[in-house]
Design a protein around this nucleic acid. Sequence first.
DNA 1: ATTATTGTATTATCTACTTAATACAATAAT
DNA 2: ATTATTGTATTAAGTAGATAATACAATAAT
Lengths: 124, 124
Amino acid sequence: MAWNLDSDRPIYAQILERIEIQIVSGVYKPGEKIPSVRELAAEAGVNPNTMQRALAELERHGLVSTQRTSGRVVTEDMNMIKETRNMLAKEQIQEFIQRMRELGFEKEEILTLLKSEAGGEKNE
Amino acid sequence: MAWNLDSDRPIYAQILERIEIQIVSGVYKPGEKIPSVRELAAEAGVNPNTMQRALAELERHGLVSTQRTSGRVVTEDMNMIKETRNMLAKEQIQEFIQRMRELGFEKEEILTLLKSEAGGEKNE
DNA sequence: ATTATTGTATTATCTACTTAATACAATAAT
DNA sequence: ATTATTGTATTAAGTAGATAATACAATAAT
């Protein structure tokens, strides 16, 4: 799977966000071990230091923990995972509405546009 | 009005986007003169070089043009303005749907969430 | 004619991010 | 016991963005 990293924002931040999404959407399950720093760095095509930074931050968020030499595992706190998912969704919704308002669109208009656009794309 | 610049993305890019939005949403009208580089830089609290870069890029997009010493004016091509607005809106919609899908939300769910969130905030 | 304002260019410095190349301690695997 | 893998730390170098301090040419305003 492509990592789709761009140069608009710091790479470590994009990686952090991506793995966070993979956890809350179930790609990495509660209690599951995630690949090593070196492995993920190779997969993403970034320097191990950059991946280490992203994972260390992710750990600060509480979604993963580390056992020194055995690697990192996803938290088993399913409630935290669920809450994180809801929080991320809420952020997306708020930001989307605000940006559309800045462009001069009203509530109903936004809903109408969404309805007509939501059916068009599947996976590309 | 606050410029709300953060350190997540390059400042010049945020400024570029902001002024673009101001043009397509009618804050700056077709043919209207926009403030000088130094003026805008002071207002935004950034270095004139940074503002110059943002405006030069904006000019590349075609939304403003410059007459050497009299300053910059917004294009009078209302069609271009309208099309830019639609393009920006479409981008927002596509990105929003994609991100919500990555979080594991389905079409109907997204619409439902939007409906319940869209009434909650006005201007804060 | 003089002055002020315009966009623009230049050079230097600072900071954050990224890569590179190692190294080390802890421990799981053998 | 030895080896390989783990997260982690360190030092150096490169790059992009932002600021600072000027400077200049063109022209609108006086």
